[in-house]
Amino acid sequence: MKKLFELFWTFAKMGAVCFGGGYAMLPLLERELVTKRGWTTQEELLDYYAIGQCTPGVIAVNVSTFIGYKRCGIVGAVAATTGMVFFPVIIIMIIAGLLRNFAENVYVQRALSGIAVCVCVLIADAVSKLWSKSIKNKFGIIVFAVVLLLSLFTDISSGFFVLGAGLLGILFFGREGSEK
């Protein structure tokens, strides 16, 4: 029970400060789950993001479900996901109910303009940290470059990139394995 509450609360805290969607949450997850608690590794986190891209739903929720499941099975998955959405749901209801002009408020916009800069920095830092964990050979560099360009300049759904890259991995490394 204590373990479940810990899961819930850890994710609730992250949900409360995660501005800018699932990707912006990566630096928080990395810090909280890898560095501080050792619940997962950087490689696993990347795997969760990859799978989160091609499974339905919100990425942040998918990642919470994976980590919760890994810690405590199905109940853990539910605890982590409930935690993730806990504060956002409350905050949105308050705003929708009471603060109709919240997003247009000049102070809110100013504070957000600062947070946006911070999110840029956090994502850049997370990318630089995860780089060496995810790209280990020429194959990796090519996949990275192709997917990056395609996702920046086309509208192809990111799920396809992930599925395609997975298949390429099987073909490429499978053959390499049999040659050795």
Partner: peptide, 20 residues
Amino acid sequence: ENAFNGLRPASMALITAAGI
């Protein structure tokens, strides 16, 4: 395992694209 070796760079690229 092989599939994940392909997935990780792709995942990384998507995160980078989001950052950009």
